[in-house]
Design a protein around this nucleic acid. Sequence first.
DNA 1: CGCCTTTTTGACATGGATCAATTGTTGTGG
DNA 2: CCACAACAATTGATCCATGTCAAAAAGGCG
Lengths: 252, 252
Amino acid sequence: MKHAPWKSPSLIPHIRCKDCPVRQHIICANCGPSELEKLDAIKTNITFQAGQTIVYAGDKVEFFGFVMRGVAALSRNLIDGRRQMVGLLLPPDFIGRLRQEVSPFDVDAVSEVTICQFPKPQFEALVLSSPALERRLLENALDELDAAREWMLLLGRKTAREKVSSLLVLIARYDAAMNEHSPADGYFFPVLLKRETMAEYLGLTIETVSRQFSALKNDGIIVLDDSQHICVPDFAMLLNEAGDDSDGGIIS
Amino acid sequence: MKHAPWKSPSLIPHIRCKDCPVRQHIICANCGPSELEKLDAIKTNITFQAGQTIVYAGDKVEFFGFVMRGVAALSRNLIDGRRQMVGLLLPPDFIGRLRQEVSPFDVDAVSEVTICQFPKPQFEALVLSSPALERRLLENALDELDAAREWMLLLGRKTAREKVSSLLVLIARYDAAMNEHSPADGYFFPVLLKRETMAEYLGLTIETVSRQFSALKNDGIIVLDDSQHICVPDFAMLLNEAGDDSDGGIIS
DNA sequence: CGCCTTTTTGACATGGATCAATTGTTGTGG
DNA sequence: CCACAACAATTGATCCATGTCAAAAAGGCG
């Protein structure tokens, strides 16, 4: 992930804000036409390939951006190279930190990612002048905080089997939400992440993740087509393996 | 913690906003005298004893509050009673969630805690009318998010010894900050948390926490007076045990 | 002093990490 | 279409950090 062969990110044709595919869900949702014009004037669209690093931990971050498409991840390292993913960024999450010079995380593209970015000073000015924008940022931050805390429970207390099951539930739900329904029995979906990425997210090793997949398969909880496509015959069984308290909130 | 003997929380004499000890650091920092009057009219001060639960997970939360004094904690449970602390609340952190009915966490008092609370509807109206207040909330949320992510690295990848060392660094820094300086060699401080609470925070068992204290003591990293008071002869040594990347951000 | 809670320590079990080998997959050039 | 290289995933054998169970010490307090 961190050392993928270098390709430069590609500047893609400018997408006008009024034509933005995710505008309804992003910060600019409440902007009027004149504000959209202003945004258009200062933004840039960039696409990164899976595996590319968008920001290195310790880098000075000169921009502020939104994930428009794809999945990005925040990760931190310990001295000896141990690595933990600490956040997933899905549209319309934001990259960058108000009033903070350097990034405390690596930010990298898990899948192909398109971001919409703004020069930091101009974006900060924008935030000051738009309470609606600020409200958006606050709600996004609170959602991410809830997700982070959910994940702390997983990292601190769940077994490997529960961790892997929880991740599958998360992915299934996200995939279903993309298609505007809920995951049901027999649900079939692609996992998109490779074992290494899952391991970084779950605080496990690749080998343990793989073993848990095999175990869940043997126990009939999941059916593996190839290693990236999964069918869940009985969704309640999978949920049960995830170990969550029944009244627990929705994951992410 | 969860089953401490019941005492009712005490309503304490109303502290006027203009006399509030932490006002500079709290959301009301930017309010003028007239706004303070308004706040005074709707707020309540309550104190909880160490071990009392302020909010139970799943409860409907009717108020929105700020920690004025003491330490509170957010925790989540798995079905079988495994328990993980997912956040520490120190002044001026807030309790409650905009636009969210029920609490996903237990909130309980680690030490004696005084909170300043507002009825939810009125507080939400206040937020709508005050961009400064909203800005405060956003910054607080982003700080908590950073802290949560730092902790995810600890939970997912650190060894027991690194976890305990990290916690000691965190506490020493907090204690030092309270006294307006930085922890130096020979720094002496009280830990305030009992082993059980540390274990819940670190994703460990009580026994493992205790063993790591003994090990750190034997290795001369710390000197234990009684089990709650610690001296760090060489702070750099302790930092080294915490395993953080040198360029890593400040914890919490 | 005796009761209760907290902490420490010991003996042992085990889940997941580590090290290593094998198999499967994808892409490339002949 | 095959051969080969690079990568991804699985599986096996072994080790060790941490959990578990149990008992002993150390405080705190009426």
